[in-house]
Design a protein around this nucleic acid. Structure first.
Length: 428
RNA sequence: GCGAGCGUAGCCAAGUGGCUAAGGCAGUGGAUUGUGGUUCCACCAUUCGCGGGUUCGAUUCCCGUCGUUCGCCCCA
């Protein structure tokens, strides 16, 4: 009989790895709370229409990567391929815009795209994202980029670069698109096949083709930055000024085009060298038209999403030490001792200690060995003699120092112990 | 969706058309029946992802399939 395995492109996050995830999530929560962002949790699936209208029917995500199906009520359902559409849907459905001012939101959770799996690219993957709804101010652009930058820094990542571009507003893009088509048309025969197809469907995407010949041709193509209207130009310049004020290094990349139709003005990506073709760790931009297109009031917005698998892959490459460990490993042998150890472990936890109780009942030597491996700074040893005397042996594993302690002292005079544990933790 | 590589224990692996499939780490038991980090001993794959084929004989060669990795595509 063959074992059932996880579906292609999905994976389990096992105990050895979940602490990495928790670190990222905790760091993000702290930073986002400080910046006044509130969490929003939306469903994992939505009506298929939401994504078709929101992301754009011509995009690859909608065209060939969505998990769509009909439910038993014959509704067309899609597992969310990204987070923004659902957030905007909720924003409209609950009329959050009537609360006035600006909504600063964040979310995290699984997303689903039917793609060929690779390291850093799965069919069920996780994103953490922010959305600022209701501000057209370039300071909002800079704020969200700064938060992403801070998050990476907090986690110890330093080797990334920020690519920045503006794709202008609708009119700018229309004008530019015409110029671009006019530029590429004489070269049609020399372009790679994909780019030939994109010439009329989505000519901006030709710019980031990896085909060397196409790239050579695209090198001389007109730049979007020369076709920005006065307002777009001004917005983009201010974003750059603010980023400089915040000492966030960036580089202009006029060929940066994001794959979702809803982007306007600012577009950016944070990339690293260590993830092969999955170099983009964070991507985002402004989407001033999306809320309106989904039937809401004219609401400018900006956001980004971080790919958590990619981020955690990077953290793991850094071999950052893990800090989470227990305070005491509790060893017991003998009928009375084992019974009392259970009670003691319970009491210690109520007193605020992290305790692991050895359940094996094997020889003290074996249990001590496990205590050592557990990473706990100290070990508590209880045999029937200790059980009789209502004491326990407290052994500090690094020094070997050991003494008998009354159980009641352990439970009620916790101050000194906590301080000593904290001091040991500090050293590691 | 296209092209290519890989798949031997929980992990890292050596291996070959033919006698019981190296080794290391981890794990379990013991030396040490109440004291760990060192050491020593023993145990730990009727089987080489799965299915089929070729062969006297396949973990090894072939086909298919599943998974994974790299590139393209796409994107976070």
């Amino acid at each position: 009989m063959s074992l059932i395995q996880a579906v292609r492109g999905t994976r389990d996050i096992l105990p050895g790895e979940s602490s990495d995830w928790q670190r990222v999530e905790a760091a993000a929560r702290t930073l986002l709370a400080r910046a006044g962002y509130q969490e929003i949790r939306t469903p994992l699936f939505e009506q298929t229409d939401l994504f078709e209208r929101g992301i754009g029917e011509a995009t690859d995500i909608v065209g060939k990567e969505m998990y769509s199906f009909q439910d038993r009520g014959e509704r067309w359902i899609t597992l969310r391929p990204e987070g923004t559409a659902g957030v905007v849907r909720a924003f409209l459905e609950h009329k959050l815009y009537t609360q006035g001012g600006i909504q600063r939101l964040w979310y995290t959770g699984p997303m689903f795209r039917y793609e060929r799996p690779q390291a850093g690219r799965q069919r069920q993957f996780h994103q953490l994202g922010v959305e600022v709804l209701g501000s057209a101010d370039p300071r909002a652009d800079a704020e969200v980029i700064a938060i992403a930058s801070d998050l990476l820094k907090t986690l110890g990542l330093s080797r990334w670069k920020l690519d920045l571009n503006s794709v202008g507003d609708l009119e700018d893009r229309q004008r530019y698109r015409e110029k671009l088509v006019a530029y590429f048309t004489p070269y049609v025969a020399e372009l790679d096949r994909d780019s030939q197809e994109r010439l009329h469907r989505n000519p901006l995407r030709i710019l980031d083709s990896k085909d060397p010949r196409t790239q050579a041709i695209a090198q001389e193509a007109p730049s979007i930055l020369d076709y920005l209207g006065a307002d777009s130009q001004r917005h983009f310049e201010q974003v750059q000024q603010y980023l400089s004020n915040l000492s966030i290094p960036y580089q202009l990349n006029p060929r940066l085009v994001r794959g979702l139709d809803y982007y306007t003005h600012t577009a950016f990506e944070m990339q690293v060298d260590d993830l092969g073709a999955q170099a983009t760790v964070c991507g985002g931009g402004r989407y001033d038209r999306l809320v309106q297109e989904l039937g809401g009031p004219d609401t400018p917005a900006i956001g980004w999403a971080i790919g958590l698998e990619r981020l955690i892959l990077l953290l793991q490459q850094l071999h950052l030490p893990l800090l989470a460990t227990i305070d005491f490993y509790l060893v017991a042998k003998g009928t009375n001792a084992e019974a009392q150890a259970l009670t003691l472990s319970h009491g210690l936890r109520q007193a605020g200690f992290a305790v692991e109780l050895d359940l094996s009942g094997s020889a003290f030597g074996k249990q001590l060995k496990r205590a050592d491996r557990s990473g706990a700074p100290a070990c508590l040893i209880m045999g029937d003699a200790e059980a009789e005397a209502k004491t326990v042996q407290l052994k500090w594993l690094a020094s070997g120092e050991q003494q008998a302690v009354a159980q009641s002292d352990l439970l009620h005079q916790t101050e000194a112990l906590q301080q000593r544990l904290a001091a040991l933790r500090e050293k590691r």
